[in-house]
Computed example of a mutant assay.
Amino acid sequence: MPREQEQRHVYYDRDLKIEAYNLSGIVQKFPNHFHKFYVIGFVEGGRRHLWCKAQEYDLTAGDLILFNPNDNHYCAPLGGEILDYRAVNIPPDIMERAASEITGKPFVPHFTQNVVYQSDITQSLGRLYDAILKGGPRLEREEAFFFLLHQVLEDYAAPFDEVEIIQPNPQIQTLCSYMDEHFSDNITLDDLLTMTSFGKSYLIRSFTRQVGVSPYRYLQTVRLTRAKKFLEQGVPPIDASDRAGFSDQSHFTNFFREFTGLTPKQYQRIFTDSSTGTSRNAPVGNTGYGKREER
């Protein structure tokens, strides 16, 4: 499919504090990565092969996708088919607050499966997306959001103390914490070695096996997450790139688009009301307080 037919719409709901996005006509492969937020999505059209936490899935229209924070995954088209996809990204604090309101007790959800084939819940997700897209009344959007979460949590989630979650060993956790804190530094493999009893080859293999991504990919994903926060705050992309620790603006832009499908400028426009113009391949919307701005 020509790139001119690709469409990438992203909307931010300032009341719900979640992102809703739609990808259509997409043939792009997405490399191995993870998110720091929950993802609830579904395939509207096309077929995809998904790898997630050492499991493989063939996805078709009507399949529901559930990602916890830090669930590493990647995907590619099947048979050259284009992808149509809708999803919402939910920050952990928003998810935990909503889950606690739904259950009436402190509750940290964990999705017990990543793919649900031919799920009726996709209809609820579609209704939430449509309510955000049209800038519907706040009550309509809140109702759709809680109705969706109630269905997902009831059928496919368990609190952390009721599901076995294999954590990396303490030395690997130390490395993750160090990169989370020192993401903007020029971290080297030797720096990481000083915090473990490992050799270089074993560190890389052990980290990748336990975390699901390599140390470099982990660091770049943390940097990407930080850069997104800077962009949301109005920091110019060139400064966001530098603050997040990327080596140069070109590398930052290419990496950002590879993992999000958007350029940094296009992503930033989701959170601003005064920007004008955008790539014809990546329309971006900004929704909040019942107002919709689509470019």
Rank of each mutant, 00 (worst) to 15 (best):
L231D: 08
R47I: 00
A20E: 04
N70G: 11
T253C: 13
T188C: 13
G104P: 03
Q28I: 01
V116F: 09
G199R: 00
A157K: 08
L148I: 10
T253N: 11
Q268R: 07
W51N: 08
Q268L: 06
F146A: 04
G212D: 00
E81M: 13
L149N: 08
Q118G: 05
F198M: 10
I121Q: 13
M95L: 15
S241Y: 00
C52W: 03
F259Q: 14
G136H: 01
R14M: 05
V43T: 09
F160G: 11
T272M: 09
M179I: 14
D180S: 10
G290L: 09
F230M: 04
G245I: 01
K229E: 15
Y11L: 01
M179H: 07
V10Y: 12
T272A: 06
Q55Y: 01
L78Q: 12
Q113G: 07
Y156S: 03
R97G: 05
H251D: 09
V108S: 12
P168N: 13
G45F: 06
Q118V: 07
V116R: 04
V213N: 09
R97F: 04
V27N: 09
L133W: 05
V108A: 14
E232W: 12
V116M: 10
I165T: 04
I18W: 00
K36Q: 15
D63R: 11
E258R: 14
D93L: 15
E140D: 08
I102P: 02
R86Q: 03
E293D: 07
H251Q: 12
N68R: 03
Y74K: 14
L78M: 10
Y74T: 06
L149R: 07
L139D: 12
Q123W: 07
P106N: 06
F34N: 01
N70S: 13
L189V: 11
K36T: 15
F145A: 11
I238M: 11
D58A: 05
R48D: 02
T196L: 03
P137I: 11
N70H: 14
P236R: 01
C52S: 02
D63V: 10
E6I: 08
G234D: 01
F67W: 07
Q220C: 14
L128E: 02
G285R: 04
F145R: 06
Q266G: 13
F111L: 06
E164M: 15
H251V: 11
E4K: 07
T225E: 14
E140K: 04
G234K: 00
E181K: 11
Q233V: 08
V27Y: 00
Q173A: 08
D190W: 05
F255W: 01
L16W: 00
L153K: 04
